[in-house]
Design a protein around this nucleic acid. Structure first.
Lengths: 174, 174
DNA sequence: CTTAAACTATGAAGCTGTAGTCAGGTCAAA
DNA sequence: TTTGACCTGACTACAGCTTCATAGTTTAAG
């Protein structure tokens, strides 16, 4: 049996958090002491570590509760959905990066920032021995093996949708 | 003079949002009609589009208000700070992706997901004509030109910090 | 001219996932 | 016995809105 303070230390979260989980029914201690203290069993700990895991994956408490309580629903679908959501979130953040770089007036900052440019990427590939032909081939292979990731990668270089469309177009054809 | 509804259409946001902006003082209409309707001037529109821009960059309303109202503070520093924040946010989301892929049992999903694997990346480079030597050179160039981006990219392939450390280590030396 | 739809107003409460504060009850050790 | 560490429930605050309730105004149709 563990008190609330012990869980707080184990999982490095605040007491308020556990109180809240109790209140919303996500993690309710299996017992109470004579003095009405919350007492968590090993099963509760087990449940808590599941919650922790899913939280790290970015799931909402509501969704976590669904997974844990309605056993019928296997988590696979939910996790896949979250994976998709993550893709859109990341791409939104990348758009924010590109916008800020524009606002800052490009040149000065591109060098210091960790955001890559199309030109910089091409320069690196050239410097490591790739020629035009090899790069074309690289796009083709990328598109064949991981079309979605190809799209994401080009976006991350700040290339516009129109140009991306063209590149992927001819990469698919060959 | 524009009513609140006209702004709603122009900027594609909800009326409640504008009411809220009014309340917190971020965007207060310059005038009111006889019936006490909010009336926005062209200057207000101008201000709104600035707000919109900074919002797209992911700045908080509080920070936006600072930039717009305290003209002394040039936005550069704030934007650079946001750029840094974006890097950590993106890398957190990538960690969530990797975790979910683990939870899903890897193999089945890696093929359909848009997340790249080290193996997949290497396969693409090989298929487009790179050999071991060229890849080594590629790391060296990447590290020399954009060390931070190199780190980010390796992280995005799900490579552990220890291995990343090794790769960047020898890439720096040569 | 009337009436209904479509607009506008104010104010309050709700949402998520915590963090923190309060006044007090409990418990083990010195 | 008294300290001090722990615990209790209940409350407030945060961002950036949304929703709700209630009501006044404008505009177009009939």
């Amino acid at each position: 049996m563990y008190t609330i303070g012990q869980l707080v230390k184990q999982f490095e979260l605040s007491r308020s958090t556990l109180l809240y989980y109790d209140k919303i029914g996500l993690l309710q201690p299996s017992a109470r002491s004579a003095a009405n203290y919350r007492l968590y069993t090993k099963d509760d700990l087990q449940r808590m570590s599941q919650i922790f895991l899913y939280k790290e994956a970015g799931l909402s408490l509501e969704v976590i509760a669904q997974i844990l309580d309605e056993q019928s629903n296997q988590p696979t679908a939910i996790l896949e959905q979250r994976l998709n959501q993550l893709n859109t979130e990341i791409s939104q953040l990348r758009q924010q990066q590109q916008l800020i770089i524009e606002l800052l007036g490009k040149e000065s900052l591109l060098r210091t920032s960790r955001v890559m440019d199309k030109a910089q990427w091409v320069a690196i590939l050239k410097a490591s021995g790739m020629d035009e032909q090899a790069m074309k081939q690289w796009h083709i292979e990328f598109e064949r093996g991981l079309p979605e990731a190809h799209q994401d990668f080009l976006e991350s270089l700040g290339i516009g949708q129109d140009e991306i469309g063209k590149i992927r177009g001819w990469a698919r054809l060959e």
